[in-house]
Computed example of a mutant assay.
Amino acid sequence: MTPDRPATPLAAFARLPRSYRDRNIAHSTIDAFGRAHWLLTERPPEPRREKPYDAVVVTVGDGPPYETHLSALRAAFPQLDALPDGGFVVADTRSRAQGEHVQVFDALGRLSWTFRVGDGIEHLLTDEAGDLWVGYFDEGVYGDDELSWPGLRRWSHTGDPLWTYHPANHGDTISDCYALNVSDRSAWVCAYTEFSLLEIGPDQGVRAHANQVRGARGLAVHDGRVTFFGGYEHERDRLVIGELTDTGVAAVAERRLVRPDGTDLGRRRVVCRGPRIYIQEDPFTEWTVLDISAG
């Protein structure tokens, strides 16, 4: 990190109630409607065992926190998101050939669907309609599972393939989906190796914006502006503020992202939704947020 960059503090957003903090946090996310969810288990899932396990999802939103109990989960490395009808999707980051590694549960926690979306899930984000946007990391893109090869796909919550990224039509190949932002019915992507800012509209058309910012792990967009978060090595806490032009992204300022109290960030998870970048640090009991529409 470069210390002479002006600091931008995060704001507190959501906190796991203390009564649940003796559980294992298997995953946590922020959904399309701004609710925080924690997938909690009695102990960490065991990667080398296929024995199903039970979990509880704790949801923190505008009202009191509430629980949804899920049974017979199979994901060794789970990723969680919520559906608009109150249900949840849990996917295993890694999958074996022909293994149905995505489980969809209804609002009562009952298993409704199982299917495959491919190996090497970097990001799993649902949109407001309940479709699943899946970005893949390099071991999936260059692995044996052809479902992962495009680098970015959209699926229905029942497992139907709805859209696939095709680099031949609009430029860059996605070798590793570093950053994914899903909001409404649109998505924004910044991916290795070229790091162009890819805009996927509601009609699924793709527009590529030339971009010089390398290694960003998060991004926020609002009203013709974009903010990239992260980078390589000492750039991990970097913010680059840019404007969308006819030819690409014009960087106008650099800052560094810090905790609400002004101290440096530690190990973190990142979820991006429209104008917001959500950050969750180890031990993953609290979410903070940067909202570029607020300034």
Rank of each mutant, 00 (worst) to 15 (best):
M1N: 03
D4G: 08
A7Q: 12
T8C: 04
A11K: 15
A14M: 11
R15S: 12
R18K: 13
R18G: 14
R21N: 09
N24L: 03
A26Q: 03
F33W: 13
F33R: 12
R35Y: 07
L39Q: 11
L39F: 14
L39S: 10
L40S: 10
T41S: 12
P44H: 05
P45A: 01
R49G: 03
K51W: 00
K51M: 06
P52L: 11
Y53G: 14
D54V: 08
A55K: 01
V60A: 14
G61Y: 06
P64R: 07
Y66K: 13
L70A: 09
L73K: 08
A75T: 06
A76S: 12
P78L: 10
P78I: 11
Q79R: 11
L80R: 06
L80N: 08
D81M: 09
A82W: 04
L83N: 08
A91S: 13
A91L: 09
D92L: 00
S95E: 05
Q98W: 14
Q103D: 14
Q103I: 09
V104N: 12
V104M: 14
R110G: 11
R110N: 11
W113D: 15
F115W: 13
V117D: 00
G120L: 04
G120V: 00
D131N: 15
D131E: 13
W133V: 00
W133L: 06
V134W: 04
V134C: 09
G135P: 10
Y142I: 02
Y142R: 09
D145N: 06
L147C: 05
P150R: 01
P150K: 01
S156W: 09
H157V: 05
D160Y: 10
P161L: 13
W163A: 02
Y165N: 06
Y165T: 04
H166E: 14
D172W: 00
T173N: 08
S175K: 11
A179D: 07
A179T: 04
N181E: 02
N181Q: 04
V182F: 08
V189Y: 05
V189N: 02
A191I: 02
Y192A: 03
T193Y: 09
L198H: 09
E199R: 01
E199D: 07
I200V: 15
P202E: 10
G205M: 02
V206Y: 07
V206M: 06
A208K: 10
R214M: 07
G218Q: 06
A220N: 08
V226Q: 05
V226P: 10
G230V: 00
E235D: 13
L239C: 08
I241Y: 12
G242S: 11
V252H: 07
E254H: 05
R256P: 04
R259E: 05
P260D: 01
D261N: 15
T263A: 08
T263L: 01
D264M: 04
G266M: 03
R267K: 09
R268V: 02
R269V: 02
V270S: 00
C272Y: 01
E281W: 00
P283D: 07
F284T: 00
W287A: 14
A294R: 15
